[in-house]
Simulated assay, not measured.
Amino acid sequence: MGVKDTSSPCRVLEGLHGVQLSGRSLYRDEGLDPGDFDASTCEGAEIVRISQKLLIRRLWQQRPSCLRPIHCCLHGDRHVAETIANVLTSLPFIVLGFQAPRKNLNTALYANSLVGVGIASSLYHSSRGEIRKILRWADYTTIAATTLCLSRALRDENPKLLMAASTMLLPFQPLMVSAVHTGMMEVAFAKRASVKPELKMAHNLHKLSSLLGGALFFADDWFPRTPYIHAAWHLAAAIGVGTCNKLLE
């Protein structure tokens, strides 16, 4: 207890970046080692580098919500039977993708994106663990990409700025991109059905399936413990997609 250890506080603090001890060489002019300046310079550069990293991380964390990935809901698939139902009801999108017209590049991209929706949905519903979060994001993103491709296939004269902005926001706000381009598709469908009588039946079926699909989409979030709602939404959405293919024929 009577032993003096005057160096211990200094040696503890010397290991911390940015700590300078006022009782040492900062106020001494004699006995300076030139190597001390090199060490302090390197330490100062390290402090600056760490500060820049922290600043960049803080700015990234404070980015606008439109540049943030979606927070995916991961409920559902609580038992094997529900997983099988969700996977089976994802397969019609693959079939519709192969059946969709491929008259030009835009329609081919739309058809391939439909196949991607079926594959992404099947992989998501059959997955478990941490990868499920990534696959849920992929599920949302492929759906948004499909609406974007359909909008382009229906109207090649869409504003380039809108299409570019939608493409940039696709990984971050797929739901918003889906909403915008689904609305554009609904307007185009209604206009064509008003001048082409052969599309009226398909349009009426499309409206019913869209209303039912929208109700099931929100019910899936409101009643997360109710089984097979998501599978029913898959079927309603598949019917709506099938009627959209009539627009491309």
Rank of each mutant, 00 (worst) to 15 (best):
K246V: 08
C73F: 13
G31K: 01
N158W: 05
I131A: 03
T142I: 05
E46F: 14
S122M: 03
R58I: 12
T167A: 09
S178M: 10
F217C: 08
S127R: 01
R58M: 15
E198C: 03
I119N: 05
L59R: 15
S166W: 07
T147I: 06
R58D: 14
C72Q: 03
D156V: 15
V48K: 02
P64L: 10
K103N: 12
H125P: 05
P101K: 00
P159Q: 05
L211W: 14
A39T: 15
S178G: 09
S121N: 12
S65G: 11
L26G: 12
L55I: 14
S127G: 08
G240C: 06
W137P: 00
W222F: 15
T146M: 07
L169S: 07
S209T: 10
H17W: 13
N86A: 03
S90R: 02
G31V: 10
N86D: 14
A120D: 04
A238L: 02
H79S: 09
A100H: 02
F223G: 04
G242Q: 06
S210P: 03
N204A: 12
I70Y: 01
V95G: 02
L67K: 00
T142C: 04
V180T: 11
D156E: 15
R155N: 12
A193C: 01
A81F: 05
S178A: 13
E82Q: 10
L170V: 10
L109R: 13
R102G: 09
G97S: 07
L54V: 11
T89H: 08
D29P: 05
S194N: 13
S8Q: 15
Y124E: 02
N86S: 09
G2S: 12
S194E: 14
S22C: 06
H79N: 15
Q20P: 07
R192I: 06
G18I: 04
A165N: 12
H125K: 08
F93M: 02
L26D: 10
K196H: 13
G23V: 01
R128S: 11
F98Q: 10
H206D: 11
D77L: 00
M176P: 02
R128D: 05
L248F: 07
A215Y: 10
F93E: 00
V3S: 12
P159V: 03
A219T: 07
L148I: 09
T146K: 00
L208W: 09
Y27P: 03
Y110F: 13
M168K: 11
N204P: 06
E46V: 13
C10D: 15
C66H: 14
Y228S: 00
G76L: 04
M163T: 14
L154D: 01
P159H: 04
A165H: 10
K160Y: 04
L175M: 08
R152I: 14
N106G: 07
L26F: 13
A232H: 01
I229E: 01
C10L: 15
N204G: 15
